[in-house]
Design a protein around this nucleic acid. Structure first.
Lengths: 334, 334
DNA sequence: AATAACATGGCGACTATTTACCAAGTTTCT
DNA sequence: AGAAACTTGGTAAATAGTCGCCATGTTATT
């Protein structure tokens, strides 16, 4: 493989000039630049990114940690991150944490050992304290879909409180009064904020929040099934069900259908996230859009702006959830 | 960040010895190894992977090209690749080609410019010739879910002919005789092989393949909808539909339901791939499992074995598709 | 106790590039 | 014409390791 020495030889130009052409950090006359570029072309020169990294102490790579590679949400997030980084010539080193504390820490260690210039983390299991401590290190970290107050400028998240509010508002607007709620585990702020939003929507309609009509699931399909089973087994009265994510909504749908419900006639259901399969469910799931793709893009932009000092990049940290109306909610006939 | 010099200082040992400990390529007495490891620990030493790469001319990174980051298939494939590579301490640089020739080439160029030790490609748009040419370069390439005869040792693929055969066999076994088939575009061997399998299954039952009852789709939901529309508009007679992938099966289901079909009573449907949402469809889709996750793992193992010379790794190149029985096919009442 | 095998030290070359610096030459402007 | 601004050359240090060689010292084997 050709080196800059050979390029400088062939172009009849000094090493420094070749470097200047490569890095665009100093004036080079058009004539000499053309000579250099022609020489590179002729030699098929490709800068050795590893040597560049070593000398400049920059790896031009950004470490990405997601919970899964094959979940519908993470895929979109990665797609967003990768496309932004790649157009900037940076690359993504991707690894997974499987929502387990030890594995997330391992993954982060792994990324640090690869000399990433920054980390974009979708860490779920690791504590706020750990992240705060980590952020004191030399490698800047950015959090997607997680809000940690102390690191708020480096967080990209959605307004989960508003999301929870909107989800419940959908069924309220259709006249439902008895609304069951399946939450995720309450140890994450995302989850509790969705619940707070739910309660707020109820309060606005002067409906008292009924502890009995809420269930703590685990964001999985089976969690949704368990939740609906619980409500039915306890002979509770409800005409609508709001779930804190689409997986649980899907599970609830399955359980409902297996137990003689006609959907959506007998039960209106709202999900959260708007994952890709929400559109494949029957009936198509009404849900709240969680713009993970754009959040991924924004996280990447934040890195480009703050770490790589690119100009003219506009960023914002909080995204607004949007209502996606489909077929799983109907007007309450009461 | 600490360097090996500081480690060797602190451990009271030579540079060479530290390197020996790091690379495990020469005998080091337990006593000195412990001293070295203790020094590393104390300094928080982490080898600089970039300097290692430069000096050893190995980047320990493998470039991955997939068609999308957020498709159900590619996610599983990446998950398989990444987990294998990571346990071996190698890392994955992931990029996308969006099934477009130019973008795939760009992506490959990008990966080559990052000094990857090998490429694992799920390239769909690029020609066989291009890949063969590429394989003559210094960086070895491996193909997933694609079979190119000239590179067969570097290809991981499934037996699509058998898959197509099994898919059609499912409905034949339930007594169906009039079987429609929605194919993908016939420019890819995967697609034509599935069709060949379909024809073979028909032939075994002495059913003549009816050109009218086959439609060329594009592997998308709308392709499936268009296919079913075509069969219906032409007033063709069929009780079962075999689709060359799950997306098209899902589209056909939607179209069928919107046009008054009761599923699965009025039409039995078989998909192909067993993507994650197949289980969320209603009725749950009977399909052929395409073990992309394992294929990804196998591709990574192949790289570990052939590029990184790891021992005791067993590999094979062709995977067998399996039937996944669910609810979208019922016995033919006729 | 002699010899072989093993463990370690020390050195130097090598990897491809960045970065800073100063000097010298060339344009351009006034 | 003289000064200022721009362009280029040349050099050298720095980046953090790998790799191979040979000499020397230390154990183990017989």
């Amino acid at each position: 493989m050709a080196t800059i020495y050979q390029v400088s030889d062939l172009a009849g130009v000094s090493l420094a000039t070749v470097s200047r052409v490569l890095n665009k950090n100093a004036r080079v006359s058009d004539k000499t630049r053309d000579k250099v570029l022609a020489a590179m072309e002729e030699l098929g020169y490709r800068p050795n990114s590893i040597a560049q990294s070593l000398a400049s102490n920059r790896s031009n790579s950004v470490g990405i940690l997601v919970s899964e590679l094959d979940g519908p949400i993470y895929g979109q997030m990665m797609a967003g991150i990768e496309s932004e980084l790649r157009t900037a010539g940076k690359h993504a080193i991707i690894t997974t944490g499987y929502s387990e504390e030890e594995k997330e820490k391992d993954g982060i260690e792994f990324l640090l050992s690869r000399n990433c210039d920054a980390l974009i983390l979708h860490a779920e299991a690791v504590s706020d304290e750990y992240l705060i401590e980590l952020s004191k290190g030399k490698v800047p970290i950015y959090l997607v879909s997680r809000y940690v107050k102390e690191l708020k400028d480096n967080c990209i998240s959605i307004d989960n409180r508003l999301g929870g509010y909107l989800a419940t508002k959908i069924v309220l607007d259709q006249g439902h009064k008895d609304i069951a709620y399946i939450s995720g585990r309450l140890n994450k702020p995302d989850t509790t904020n969705r619940l707070i939003g739910h309660k707020k929507a109820l309060a606005e309609e002067n409906i008292e929040f009924d502890e009995q009509l809420s269930f703590v699931g685990d964001y999985s399909e089976t969690g949704g099934m368990a939740g609906l089973k619980y409500f039915i087994d306890n002979k509770l009265n409800f005409s609508a069900l709001v779930c804190a994510n689409d997986e649980m909504a899907s599970g609830a749908m399955k359980y409902a259908r297996e137990h003689g419900f006609n959907l959506p006639e007998d039960l209106s259901i709202v999900g959260f996230d708007n994952v890709s399969f929400a559109n494949y469910l029957y009936p198509k799931l009404t849900t709240i859009d969680n713009p993970t793709n754009e959040m991924g893009k924004m996280a990447a932009k934040l890195v480009l702006k703050t770490v790589y000092k690119q100009k003219n990049i506009k960023t914002h940290n909080i995204f607004e959830p949007k209502v996606i109306m489909r077929k799983s909610v109907i007007i309450h006939k009461g």
